[in-house]
């Protein structure tokens, strides 16, 4: 079915936002994404990681932070298999899996990503499965992050 979303691949939710609308706080993430690197905001006051980037540390209320590079791997914390398209033009990408991935190298809550998880069988994917990040370089600005099973 032709639609507004371009050619679709089963299991891959298409990029629908092409601009990052980044501010100073968010830009380091998108800069690293261009180089296929995952960086995460890190409180230099207490060491807590947080995602997405935000002005204050929820643990110690410090504004001091830097960005630390993470291994880019993680574990599926929860997920859903979207079988019914929310928009008729999205039928060809269903079913797709999207969920919560807890990032290796962080401290649990505060550094999860909500992502489309690709290259998985929607009938066997499960919480606890190991995944790694992969970026789709959409344009000079946006690199859409997705996760896929660790291949190596």
């Amino acid at each position: 079915m032709a639609g507004d979303f371009g050619p679709l691949t089963k299991g891959v939710f298409p990029t629908i936002l092409f601009e990052t609308h980044a501010d100073e706080m968010a830009q380091p993430f998108w800069d690293a994404a261009k180089d296929d690197r995952l960086v995460c905001q890190h409180c230099t006051g207490c060491g807590t990681f947080r995602m997405p980037p935000s002005p204050f540390c929820f643990k110690c209320q410090s504004r001091d932070h830097d960005f630390r590079e993470l291994p880019g791997t993680g574990t599926i914390y929860s997920f859903t298999v979207v079988r019914h398209p929310l928009h008729p033009d999205l039928i060809d990408c269903c079913p797709y899996v999207s969920g919560v991935v807890e990032l290796d190298g962080t401290q649990g809550a505060g550094a999860r990503m909500l992502v489309n998880i690709i290259d998985v069988d929607p009938d066997t994917v499960k919480i606890g499965d190991r995944v790694e990040i992969v970026f789709e370089h959409v344009n000079d600005e946006m690199s859409t992050p997705r996760f896929r099973p660790i291949t190596s």
Partner: peptide, 11 residues
């Protein structure tokens, strides 16, 4: 700015 972190995830 936080929106771009989830806009393309299909949720």
């Amino acid at each position: 700015p936080s929106a771009a972190f989830t806009a393309n995830n299909g949720l």
